[in-house]
Design a protein around this nucleic acid. Sequence first.
DNA 1: TAAACATACAACCAAATGGTTACATATTCA
DNA 2: TGAATATGTAACCATTTGGTTGTATGTTTA
Lengths: 108, 108
Amino acid sequence: MAAPTEKHDVFKAIADPTRREVLRLLAENERPISEIADHFDMSRTAVTKHLQILTEAELISGRKEGREKIYQLHPEPLTEVKQWLSYYEKFWGNKLAMLKHLVEDENY
Amino acid sequence: MAAPTEKHDVFKAIADPTRREVLRLLAENERPISEIADHFDMSRTAVTKHLQILTEAELISGRKEGREKIYQLHPEPLTEVKQWLSYYEKFWGNKLAMLKHLVEDENY
DNA sequence: TAAACATACAACCAAATGGTTACATATTCA
DNA sequence: TGAATATGTAACCATTTGGTTGTATGTTTA
């Protein structure tokens, strides 16, 4: 079988600048939706949709607390991006990465 | 003034799996369009559009050679992604990154 | 309990995305 | 030169994306 087709992959999730800004905000602090929305020049509904996409990519999660919904960061899925990037590091003169590839990659 | 709004930023460019696969192919070798297109189950025209987007992100460039157009990889713009990612490395237990942030980041 | 607050959700919309087919043009080769 | 090859490009299409407004629901708080 093929890979278990992720509903929203992390590459798509981080493609949008608004969503990257949300991640930055949540890296500082967990926050309720309204506080996140205050940082943007768009409706709370629009922000909520971005939060859903980030949630599907498992980059954030929200818990209900009273009438608020508090979102927090889960940076782990970003390792997928990091791994993908590491393949290209050998091309741009990062000596540590080159060494890593020298050791690990037969074809290098 | 704001930043000089890039026509196609690198995050959008790498968001699509087809385009990531193109980058991988060109990491192995420079190739003409038709050879790239052969790797995909879609029309040459569709592949050409992906090549345009990657070109606008300056991740690849093409030169005309006879009747062929040869594309090659330019991985440099990926450093922008790498830099963006590095901010989150302090969260996932990479000791080198943590050290880096300890040294560089006052608020850490 | 009534008002204010925080969120949820449905319905709608314009533009972007990712693909197609058809046809035109430039280059090479027999 | 004529056919085959490689690419360019226009026109079109369905779906996704990123946003909106309006209304409903649950939770504090005065």
